[in-house]
Design a protein around this nucleic acid. Structure first.
Length: 883
RNA sequence: GGAAGUUUAGCUCAGCUGGUUUAGAGCACCUGCCUUACAAGCAGGGGGUCAUUGGUUCGAAUCCAAUAAUUUCCACCA
């Protein structure tokens, strides 16, 4: 048993001082570090934040959950390993670097690739990893020795090898395709990085005059409707539906593009909807994905009039150099002046925006690298369908399935410099070799043409999509040699830690990351990358708005931590974090966390301050309290474990919270608390301290700092000892009936207190109490102490106030304080209610169908209800008579 | 346009396999207390036609259907 400490503790808990102290202690003692051993592993890889990112509330939620899981596993005796790291985030980082350089007057276009990368690495060294420092403030127990970065040499090699592997397998190809072009970031992006938003725009109806045989305009015209008048110069045809009789007369005719008077044919294709717009579609193969398809079918020329910035080029002939949106305004005016504008309609249509830069996506034809996903997706779908991976909450299975069944080829090349460069080398004749290194590429090239020299080989200028490295994360953090090299035997770490246990992440990256990790796991490990995926919600403000910089509704977590302490922030975040639901964050939740810290702190101050009389007699009320709380603690542990198993972290937390606050502090401590000036007996004290110790261990995964601080102060600890490696308390046997009896006693106490409040009787004033009905004698001392009962009397003939708990009639004789008529009215109202209740129960029991169909236990329960109601009615009638 | 989810107290949510006396919790609210751990607290209290309608059933917050509201995901109708 823990020895008595006489150490003075501060009246107030000071998180700032305590948190830094213990985090340093944990680091010094390498408490977070894990090495493979004979224990069962429990592994989490962090969803790597952007290397130049700053901690926001979403990170707080995610990493708190991760930390709770990892600390819980550690205390459950598993070998817990949480691998931290950062993501190079190619677009996001590159655009930050570009912006930063622009501030200094340096433009990316003026730099060589090497010069730019030098700046980028400098920036990374300077700002990279700030977020990892911030995670330490939150208390994250990551194994920092294992910190990884997706662009460190070893991990980049893994990415390169993966590319080569899939290329040689025939799953990666290079081809001209219509891709999503981001004119701000100057790169292609994948379909998943495009966000479609309904956007207010206009529908312009334009008049195209029909050309005569010489290509001169006639008086006849047709009208097309478009949202993009600035692209008419790139039109290759006008298309109508072959079934549309209105336009049959146009067969074989040509029309003239307004303003530039270039003649284009009228063609027919089923794609055109007859009843949409005017039924005439302008076909612009270079600047619209559909039009490109139509163009392919009809062998139309492709004329690109937009440059990489989204500005019109000289091929447009007019408005050259203008931005596409500026040009749109101008061309409308020109069309109007030329008499080609029929009308403008208000129109709302979905427009694609870049996830990163928010620029309007421009469909653009370009040569890119793609990965075929069909086969990979099929296998990855199976992992979830079969239950090898569980998604929590389950509703995400549908989302996941839908994406997997419709997965398009993945555009993996990006026209950026910050990232893993594509390991493809071009020979002077245009043929390509794909190898892991320049040396191997040269070798391969020489197999084609022995005269090739190294300087003649040109490496592809593009880099790979960031997610093409993140999808290897659960493998490459342990053994970077494995991805792309199926014959490489997994090293000790990978064999031990893979598959990881749980993944906690936001649903917004289910396709970007989660799905693709499953594919990579399947391909390179023939096993899932994790067992469970817990999807958090999005953190919103209390009005339900997404947190954003522009709204200014996103608090800085570090400021919160400084103000309230990390434990409070963690608790505040978890209180409202049921899986899959959005989190409505409000600072009052963090205040609640702080209040809980104070409660724990003060409870220990109380117990710590008791004078212990080792040989003192244990009062009966204390004996009962200890027996009760011991049972309740066991029952709660069972509940909490069940919640954890189901990833119901906030329910687990609430169960512990209430156990500590309502049961331990408000009820238990009040019962065992020695009278003023007296000491506490040794047995009660030991039990009280032991309960406290167990509850600290239950709370520790959620609130690591205050629990360590108090646990350390409870007894002399060995150097390096920590609550982190204590074992989760185990539930012992408990007697549910005893707990129920105690609850009944608590309700009687509450009843007495209510009478006191109502009659304004001070708690100090002892009362008499008459209990009629089934109350265990053991509970009397508990009731006496908690409700300040000076005497239990057998009968209560005079004026009294009464209430009923279950079937126990409780009466407090209160000569002179009872308002008879008021009391009578109260009893009558209750009587009325009970009679109605009885009538309801009897109606049920009188129903032959019910008695015949319902299970016996349910019928018996109804009979018990009937009997109880009768007993209460009898008691109430007696009270009424006495009044 | 397609799909999925949600709807229970002022707010945020539990309520799992339909049955447990009057549907729960946290926060907020009201009343009374500075009672010798804690006013960041203690004690007590009020508050819900379980979105609507219909169905299944002896019995529905719970299962089914429709409707409404709302959220999210997917989707290239110019």
């Amino acid at each position: 048993m823990l020895s008595l400490q006489t150490m003075e503790i501060n009246a107030k808990y000071n998180p700032a001082e305590v948190e830094d102290k213990w985090y340093a202690y944990w680091l010094k003692n390498r408490c977070f570090h894990s090495e493979p051993d004979s224990r069962e592993p429990y592994t989490i890889v962090i969803p790597p934040p952007n290397v130049t990112g700053i901690l926001h509330m979403g990170h707080v939620l995610n990493n708190t959950l991760n930390d709770v899981l990892i600390r819980k596993a550690r205390m459950d005796g598993k070998n817990a390993c949480w691998v931290p790291g950062t993501d190079h985030a190619s677009i996001a980082t590159e655009s930050k670097v570009v912006a930063r350089l622009a501030e200094k007057g340096i433009h990316k276009e003026d730099l060589t690739r090497e010069e730019f990368l030098k700046y980028a690495w400098e920036w990374k060294e300077e700002h990279g990893g700030i977020i990892l420092q911030q995670l330490r403030k939150l208390g994250a127990s990551c194994d920092w020795d294992r910190t990884r970065f997706t662009m460190e040499p070893e991990l980049s090699d893994a990415v390169t090898a993966t590319f080569v592997y899939f290329y040689k397998k025939g799953l990666i190809y290079h081809g001209y395709r219509m891709v999503n072009w981001d004119p701000v970031a100057h790169t292609a992006i994948s379909d998943d990085e495009v966000i479609h938003r309904d956007t207010k725009s206009h529908f312009y109806h334009l008049r195209y005059f029909i050309a005569d045989a010489d290509g001169k305009p006639t008086k006849e015209f047709l009208t097309i409707a478009t949202t993009r008048p600035e692209t008419i110069m790139a039109d290759a045809a006008i298309c109508v539906n072959p079934a549309d009789e209105r336009y049959h007369y146009l067969r074989g005719k040509k029309v003239l593009i307004p303003l530039i008077n270039r003649a284009i044919p009228v063609i027919e294709d089923d794609y055109v909807e007859m009843d949409f717009g005017t039924g005439c579609l302008k076909v612009t193969p270079a600047h619209d994905a559909h039009d490109y398809e139509i163009g392919q079918r009809h062998d139309l020329p492709i004329l690109e009039i937009l440059d990489d910035d989204g500005r019109l080029n000289e091929k447009a002939q007019i408005l050259v150099g203008e931005d596409r949106f500026v040009a749109r305004k101008h061309i409308v005016k020109l069309l109007e002046d030329a008499g080609n504008l029929v009308k403008i309609e208000e129109y709302i249509s979905p427009v694609g925006y870049s996830e990163r830069t928010d620029a309007v996506i421009e469909p653009k034809l370009s040569k890119q690298w793609f990965l075929k996903l069909e086969g990979l997706a099929k296998a990855a779908l199976e992992s979830v369908e079969s239950g090898n991976i569980k998604l929590i909450p389950e509703k995400y299975r549908n989302v996941y399935r839908h994406w997997m069944e419709n997965a398009h080829d993945w555009c993996i090349s990006r026209q950026l410099w910050w990232g893993q460069r594509i390991p493809a080398w071009y020979l002077p004749d245009g043929s390509v070799v794909v190898e892991e290194t320049a040396e191997k590429a040269l070798e391969a090239a020489r197999a084609i043409d022995p005269s090739i020299t190294a300087s003649q080989l040109k490496q592809d200028e593009d880099v790979l999509d960031t997610w093409f490295s993140s999808w290897l994360w659960p493998i490459s953090v342990f053994d970077p040699k494995r991805p792309g090299h199926p014959r490489h035997k997994p090293n000790r770490d990978l064999s031990y830690y893979y598959p990881t246990s749980d993944l906690v992440t936001g649903p917004d990256i289910i396709f970007f990351w989660v799905a693709r990790m499953v594919m990579a796991g399947d391909e390179f490990m023939k096993d899932v990358p994790f067992r469970n995926v817990y999807f958090t919600g999005i953190v919103r403000d209390k009005l339900g708005r997404k947190m954003s910089k522009t709204l200014g509704n996103s608090p800085d977590p570090l400021v919160l931590i400084e103000k309230y302490g990390a434990d409070s922030v963690r608790l505040g975040m978890l209180l409202c974090a049921s899986a899959g639901n959005d989190i409505l964050y409000d600072e009052s939740q963090v205040e609640q966390g702080r209040n809980f810290c104070a409660k724990i702190w003060n409870a220990w101050r109380l117990v710590n301050g008791w004078r212990v009389e080792e040989k003192g007699r244990q009062p009966e009320s204390a004996r009962v309290a200890v027996k009760w709380f011991d049972g309740l603690l066991s029952r709660t542990i069972v509940t909490v474990e069940d919640h954890y198993r189901k990833f119901r972290i906030n329910d687990a937390l609430m169960a512990i919270y209430k156990l500590f606050w309502d049961d331990y502090c408000s009820t238990y401590l009040e019962l065992v608390k020695p009278a003023y000036g007296e000491g506490v007996d040794g047995y009660t004290f030991d039990a009280t301290v032991s309960f406290f110790d167990k509850m600290l261990k239950l709370i520790h995964p959620v609130m690591p700092f205050i629990t360590e601080e108090l646990w350390q102060s409870m007894a002399e600890r060995r150097p390096g000892e920590t609550i982190m490696y204590e074992r989760t308390p185990v539930a012992g046997p408990y007697d549910s009936e005893y707990l129920a009896e105690f609850d009944k006693a608590r309700q009687i106490v509450a009843g007495v207190r209510a009478v006191r409040a109502q009659k304004q009787i001070a708690p100090k004033e002892g009362l008499k109490l008459c209990l009629e009905g089934d109350v265990q004698p053991e509970m009397l001392p508990v009731i006496a102490k908690s409700a300040n009962i000076s005497e239990f009397v057998d009968s209560c003939s005079g004026a009294s106030v009464s209430f009923i708990v279950g079937t126990v009639k409780c009466s407090i004789p209160l000569e002179g304080l009872v308002d008879t008529s008021q009391e009578r009215a109260k009893v009558e109202a209750e009587l009325e209610h009970q009679r109605k209740f009885l009538a309801g129960v009897r109606a049920k029991l009188g129903n032959q169908n019910f008695v015949a169909h319902a299970p016996q236990a349910v019928v018996d329960n109804e009979k018990k209800k009937e009997a109880d109601a009768l007993a209460r009615i009898e008691a109430l009638e007696a009270s009424l008579k006495a009044l």
